[in-house]
Simulated assay, not measured.
Amino acid sequence: MEPFKIHILGCGSALPTLRHNPSAQVVELRGKQFMIDCGEGTQTQMRRSRIGFNKVVAIFISHIHGDHCFGLIGMLSSFGLLGRTMPLAIYAPKEFKPVLDMMLKTFCYDFDYEIQFHAVDTTKQQVIYEDRSLTVESIPLKHRLPTCGFLFREKPTLPHIRRDMIDFYHIPVSQINNIKNGASWTDEEGREIPNSRLTTPADPARSYAYCSDTCYLPSLHERVAGVSCLYHESTYITADIDRAELYYHSTAAQAAQVARDANVGRLLLGHYSSKYDDEQQLLKEAQEVFPESQLTAEGMTIDLK
């Protein structure tokens, strides 16, 4: 099974603290890296986590609050200083385009690589990126300005070849791809060997949903139903639900409700308010609703199986 990893680079909210950096993650799948949000200090966190810069093929920005994008222009500049030539795709709400253009014109006007901007319609759930390994969908969210999450879906793989059966029936190597694609085999005596005897089932396709800043959405579980892993912002505890509602954020318990109703594999909590010295109270509230909840922390790597 190919690695499908989520690297946590920042899980704090708007005000950086000595414990947490602002939002940033890297999703790694089959040799490619995809950055989600890029808060201040993301480059340093990448180096601490020993994540190389050269394999980042796309950056996804959920919305244009500073704690989700202040680190981007520095990241783009470093790509240029490191001699990048491969194009870089940036997916973000259309409102980000003039901001990005201004920063590029001011600070980064002599790159040797192309930046390809893709405006995301934050009101629709649709595929915005696709390659041979995965698709990425936008997830409409509700915050104080246009915001979306991102859903990474691994594409199904082919069944595994049973090498012992290939050897037993003396099947030529040239036929292996046909068998992976469902073909049976006829031996020298004319007997048909069914495909099910020559293969074992493919690994289940994995998925990861990143739900950035949002108020609680009772129907959100329908958009992320059954994902292997869900990240959902959990800025506040229930005692501070009035602040959550005021600033269009969610509590840990509300994040857990989404995870429970969506029947996800596990829930990652993050975007903690700087007012809490101990996030264990967030975890306790979430686990009372959805036991498979866990706190994120800088430097953590989640490996999806």
Score class of each variant (00 low, 15 high):
A262K: 07
A255V: 05
Y236F: 13
S234P: 08
E279N: 15
H232P: 04
T251L: 06
L220H: 02
D203P: 15
Y216M: 11
S234L: 03
R266F: 12
E245H: 01
I237C: 13
R206L: 13
I237L: 12
I237P: 06
L246P: 06
Y236R: 01
K275H: 13
A252P: 06
L267Y: 05
H271G: 14
D261E: 13
A225N: 10
C211Y: 04
A202V: 11
V258M: 00
P204M: 08
L269C: 09
S273W: 07
N263P: 07
L230H: 03
A259H: 00
Y248E: 08
V264I: 10
T238F: 03
R260D: 04
T235E: 05
C229H: 15
A262M: 04
Y247D: 04
H221A: 10
A239E: 14
Q254S: 02
S228F: 02
R266C: 09
Y247E: 03
Y236G: 00
S219M: 00
C211K: 03
S274T: 12
E233W: 05
A209C: 06
Q281Y: 10
H232N: 12
Y272H: 13
D261P: 02
L282T: 03
T238Q: 15
A262T: 04
G265A: 00
C211W: 08
R266P: 09
Y272P: 15
D240L: 06
S234N: 02
D261G: 01
Y210V: 08
A209M: 02
D242P: 07
S212I: 03
Y210D: 01
S234R: 00
D261W: 02
Y236W: 11
Y276D: 08
Y216F: 15
Y272K: 11
A239R: 14
D203M: 14
H271V: 10
G226N: 13
Y272R: 06
D203T: 13
Y248R: 11
L267R: 07
L268C: 05
G265W: 06
D278A: 10
R223T: 05
K275A: 13
R223Y: 06
S228W: 04
V224C: 06
L269F: 11
T214D: 01
I241S: 12
I237V: 14
L220S: 03
Y208N: 01
E279Q: 15
V264L: 05
I237A: 00
A252Q: 00
R243C: 08
S228Q: 11
D203H: 14
E222K: 11
T214S: 15
E279D: 15
E245L: 10
L267S: 01
E222G: 02
S250M: 07
R223G: 07
C211D: 02
V258H: 05
